[in-house]
Design a protein around this nucleic acid. Structure first.
Lengths: 346, 346
DNA sequence: CCGTTCTCCAAAAACGTTTTTGAATGTGGC
DNA sequence: GCCACATTCAAAAACGTTTTTGGAGAACGG
C-alpha cells in the first residue's frame, strides 16, 4: 500500500505553485525574466516540498556539472600530510564560493591516472580537472589540450603553455645547496625524488646551479634518485657510505627521504646534523620532532590551493589564460643544518 | 570551418556498425540477448571512435550512478595520517572490483555535513554513502534510514540497526587502562576525544569499566575532554597538574592529544614515560619518533576499508543487512608505558 | 508443413530537467 | 486609438542514453 514513492520532480513544484514547469526552472536558476514575487513563491514551495533538481537531468540538459574533479595519485607523499589537506581545503573554498563542487578521485595505480582522466572527460563527469605529479612530458596534458578541456595542474611541464600553480623547487634546490655551501660544505649529496616528475628535475637543476655558481662541479656519484618504496633514503645513504663517496652534507628532495636517511646514518654511527648536515623539504609534522629537528622547507599549500581553485574558476568563466603562479617555499631552520666540523680530507 | 565539434554519441556508433541504437546500448552494457559477434563489432567500433556513454544521460535513464560517495569531515584527524588513506584505498579497491566508482567529498564545516548528504541524496549524485564521525544520536542516520538510502558508517551509534564498521574503542580503552593498572598505576587520567562522537564514549566506558573491574572507582577530575583546537592535550595536562589532581599515568584518546600532552609535561619538567606513563591511540607516524616512542594502538584501516567497501557493494546488490563489523586494534608497545616508580603519596 | 519457441534486433517511449520559441498582457508615445 | 516595446510566463523541443515492447526469422517438435 502507499504510492511507489515516485521521485519528487519539478512538475510537482509547478503544480503546487500553479505555474508552468519552465517558469519554475527559471525561477530556481535565478533568471531575470521572472517576477520577484513569483520567484519567492517558487522558492517557498520548493523548500516546503524538499525539491532539488536531479543532478543527472540538469547536467544532461545544461551540458555542465558544476563540478571540478581533483585527481589525486595515491602514492603522492603530500597526501599523507595535513598540509596536503590544506591544499584541498583551499581549492574547495574558492570553488564553492563560485557555486562549484569539488570532487576528489583517487588513482590507485600509476597506470590508471590517464584512464581516469579519459573517463571523467569523455563521460562528462566534470567541468574541469585538477591534478599534480606532472611529468616533463605529460601525455595527460597534451590529451586535454587537444580536446580543449579545462584543467589546471599542480606543477609545471617542459612546455608550459597551460595553466599551473607550482612551488619553486628550483629555488628550493638552489637555496638549500647554497646554505650548505655557506656552512662550509663542498661534498654535498642530493637524494632526489623520482626524476620522472618535473619538480624533481627543477630541484636537481637548482642544486647543480648552486654548486656551479660557487665553483663546485656536480658529481654524479653524489646524486641518487630515491623512491618511496624501491630505493629509499636509507639505501642511498648506505650506498654513499659503503662506496666511500664521502659527502659531508645531504639535501633531500623531501622529508620522508630525509627521515629514512637519518635512520641509516644512525645505523652507521653518524649523527645527523653534527656529523652530516641535512636539509629536507615539505616540513611534514614529524620533521619538527625527529632528533634535533630537521631543517626543511615549508610550503604554503593553503594559498596554493586557493590560487588553484581561483584559476579554475576563472578558466571556467571564460578567461582564456594561460595563467601561471609560482610560489616560494620558506626555509625552516632547525637542528640538522650544521657547519662542516670534523670533515675528512677534502 | 570544421564541424562545431558535436559530442560523439551512441548514434554514431550505431551508424558505423549499421545496427540500431538500442542494440549498441545493449551490447555495450553486457546484455545477453546480443550475438557475440555483434557485441565484438560494437565494442571494436566504440573503441575506434573513442565513444563513452554520457554519464548524465545514462544515469538519468537508468536511475543509478554506479558511484559511491565517501564524505570526509575535514577536521578528522585520521585524514591527516597515511593510514586513513589506507582506508580509502581499501574502499576504492573493493568498490571498483564491482564496477563502482569512489568519489570523495569534503565537508569543511561541521554544519555542512548534513547539507552535503541531503544534496547528494536528493539530487541523486550517488547510489550509496559512506561516512564516519558518528554521534550517539545521529540525525544523518535517521534521515537516511527514513528514505531507505543505502549507507554504511565508520562507527556505531546508540541505536545501531544500520550497517557499520568500527574499531573496538571500548576494548582499546579497557586494555589501555588495564595495562596501566597492571604497571602499578591507580591514578590514571583519561584525556578523551570530543565526546559528541560515539567512539569517544566507547573508549571512556572501557576506561571506566577497567577501573571498576580492578576495584578503582573513576574520578571525574581525571577525565578531561580534549579537542583539536579549543582544549588540547597540553591544556588538559596543565589543568591536571595545577589543580593537583595527581595522576601517575594518562590514557589519551588519540596520539595528537598524547603528543600535545607530552609537550606540556616537558614544560613542567615531567618526563613522559618515567615520570608519567602514557598510552595513546592511532599510531600516527610521529608516534614512533617522538622521545622514546609513544605506546599506542594501531588499527588495520586497510582491512576496515575493504570491509566497508564490500559491505556497501553487498547492500547495493540487494543484500538487506544489517551487517556490522567490529575490528580490534593492536597495542604497540614503545617507551611511554612504564611502571609506577617514584610516585607521590597515594 | 504448421505451430511454437527461441534468438536477435529495431522502433519508440521514457528519464527530469533546461532552453528555445512564442504568446499574452501591460505600458507608453504619438 | 493604434503601434511598438517590455515584461512575464507557457508550450514544446531538446539533451543522450536505457528500457520496454514487439516483430522477423531461425530452429525445432510433431
Amino acid at each position: 500500500m502507499g504510492e511507489p514513492a515516485r521521485r519528487l520532480g519539478i512538475r510537482d513544484v509547478a503544480e503546487q505553485t500553479g505555474l508552468s514547469v519552465s517558469t519554475v526552472s527559471r525561477a530556481l536558476n535565478g533568471y531575470s525574466d521572472v517576477k520577484l514575487e513569483t520567484r519567492r513563491k517558487v522558492e517557498a514551495v520548493a523548500e516546503k516540498l524538499g525539491y532539488r533538481a536531479s543532478f543527472a537531468a540538469s547536467s544532461l540538459r545544461s551540458q555542465q556539472t558544476n563540478t571540478v574533479t581533483f585527481m589525486v595519485s595515491k602514492p603522492w607523499t603530500k597526501f599523507v600530510d595535513p598540509f596536503f589537506l590544506s591544499l584541498l581545503d583551499g581549492v574547495e573554498l574558492s570553488l564553492q564560493a563560485q557555486g562549484y563542487a569539488l570532487q576528489i578521485i583517487m588513482a590507485r595505480e600509476y597506470e590508471t591516472e590517464f584512464e581516469i582522466i579519459r573517463n571523467s572527460v569523455e563521460r562528462g563527469r566534470c567541468d574541469g580537472l585538477l591534478f599534480g605529479r606532472t611529468r616533463p612530458e605529460d601525455e595527460r596534458i597534451e590529451w586535454l589540450q587537444e580536446r580543449g578541456f579545462p584543467f589546471v595542474t599542480v606543477g609545471r611541464t617542459d612546455k608550459s603553455d597551460h595553466d599551473w600553480v607550482d612551488v619553486d623547487h628550483y629555488k628550493i634546490g638552489y637555496q638549500a645547496t647554497e646554505r650548505l655551501i655557506r656552512l662550509g660544505h663542498a661534498r654535498i649529496a642530493h637524494l632526489t625524488t623520482p626524476l620522472r616528475y618535473a619538480y624533481s628535475i627543477h630541484a636537481l637543476r637548482g642544486y647543480r646551479d648552486a654548486l656551479d655558481a660557487h665553483g663546485i662541479g656536480h658529481d654524479p656519484a653524489l646524486e641518487i634518485e630515491c623512491y618511496l618504496s624501491r630505493k629509499t633514503g636509507a639505501d642511498a645513504v648506505t650506498e654513499l657510505i659503503t662506496r666511500g663517496v664521502g659527502p659531508t652534507a645531504i639535501f633531500c628532495g623531501n622529508d620522508v627521504i630525509a627521515l629514512s636517511a637519518m635512520e641509516a646514518m644512525r645505523q652507521f654511527g653518524i649523527r645527523p646534523g653534527p656529523d652530516m648536515a641535512l636539509i629536507g623539504c615539505d616540513d611534514i609534522p614529524v620533521a619538527a620532532h625527529v632528533g634535533m629537528g630537521l631543517t626543511t622547507f615549508r610550503q604554503d599549500l593553503d594559498a596554493l590551493g586557493m590560487r588553484l581553485g581561483r584559476m579554475m574558476v576563472a578558466k571556467l568563466g571564460g578567461d582564456a589564460g594561460p595563467h601561471q603562479q609560482l610560489i616560494d617555499a620558506e626555509l625552516i631552520l632547525r637542528g640538522t643544518d650544521l657547519p662542516l666540523s670534523g670533515g675528512r680530507a677534502e
